[in-house]
Nucleic acid binder design. Sequence first.
DNA 1: TTTCCGACTGATCGACCGGTCAGGTTGGAA
DNA 2: TTCCAACCTGACCGGTCGATCAGTCGGAAA
Lengths: 218, 218
Amino acid sequence: MHESAASPQTEARTEAAQRVLEASKILFAERGYDGVSIRDIAEKAKVSKANVFHHFGSKANLYAAILEQVAEQLGTKLDVLRDSSCSVQERVARFAELDLQDQLEDPHCVYLFLRQLMAPNNTEQRRKAEQVIRDSLRSLLQLLEQLQEQGELPADTDPLALTLAIAGGNFMYFQLQGILAEFQRDGRPVDPSTFSRSLMHLITPAVNNGPTPPTTRG
Amino acid sequence: MHESAASPQTEARTEAAQRVLEASKILFAERGYDGVSIRDIAEKAKVSKANVFHHFGSKANLYAAILEQVAEQLGTKLDVLRDSSCSVQERVARFAELDLQDQLEDPHCVYLFLRQLMAPNNTEQRRKAEQVIRDSLRSLLQLLEQLQEQGELPADTDPLALTLAIAGGNFMYFQLQGILAEFQRDGRPVDPSTFSRSLMHLITPAVNNGPTPPTTRG
DNA sequence: TTTCCGACTGATCGACCGGTCAGGTTGGAA
DNA sequence: TTCCAACCTGACCGGTCGATCAGTCGGAAA
């Protein structure tokens, strides 16, 4: 048999096994667990079907390995929130912008996470997804509460609603990126960092650097 | 053969066929197209497997029928935006609240729509989903622009970002409803209409229906 | 050399998939 | 009463699914 999927191994993986992981990630993200067969994965990874089972034991195990990889990747986002030595405002703005960038850079990750979140309640899959998003949102929420205590955020605004608006706005941009252009008067695509700034600005003008108009700044 | 799936028939459907539709909607929403077999549907609908094919021709046809039903249901939301005779502010607020209510009342609809949106780009499925969301967002966006012309919305806020923040915030609430309670200091679940009001308030205090004085806006 | 072990493969399994088919049943028009 | 069309079913089909297995191969250990 093989090592339990719970072990945090990113270590010695055969080149073939690595190809299987990469192919799986893409295919599972695009078509979902049931929409992908081991044959599809093996073919894309240029590996025999039996070899997939040799390395990962079962389809469920392989999927679990992918999800673990995704959760790990998404978890690292938090570091920016804690470690940064700049002001709270900047940290919030950076978080929002980085969150959007991460989504745009690795869409497969987002789709995998979203599918995990769509699993029925009280399943291990769903709980794990909730854990990831809980950690992320809680950190952002705490930052916003901190901001409110500093008086940089109006006292009557709800930090929780603000948190969801930021995260949700980013997600919406990510999902609808392709059709946002036609909402613009000039018909040009919306630049992600510009959007990020607009989002921060409209939600809490106090966070933005005061009188500067929301035009492109270097 | 059967009627083309494109026909807008909500008409004479056998009781059995109706049961199949309902069962399909739930199962497809929960597990996705590939995660559900005709056997599963037939069993849940208490109908023979062959009868499913008799009424809907193929699995793909059945799924298309479900999606059409979903699109129709989601499209009706727009009426509230247009017909209402109340002020623009109220219409925006009502739209946000109604949007959230709709999601909470029929989660299966949301999941089906989300799965449709996760289909690869340039597929008919994906395009149809984009069409629905485009219509909805455009209406909301126009309302907000109208609001901005009236001076009820700061001139330097981006209506598009605001639109996505509202829609995204609602979606986030819907998805994370179960874990939001522990973000509250009192640990109690967040009431949807309360959340809706908070969301509207923080995004643009002027829109808030309450007799809030012209905010400090600083 | 011989032994041994992990990487890897082609052939194959039973189960289940979407879909078909022949035929039974029923209700209303002719 | 006859007839026909629609509703509905159990049995069945070819194909694909996840998974297994016997066995090949190459390199490190003995």
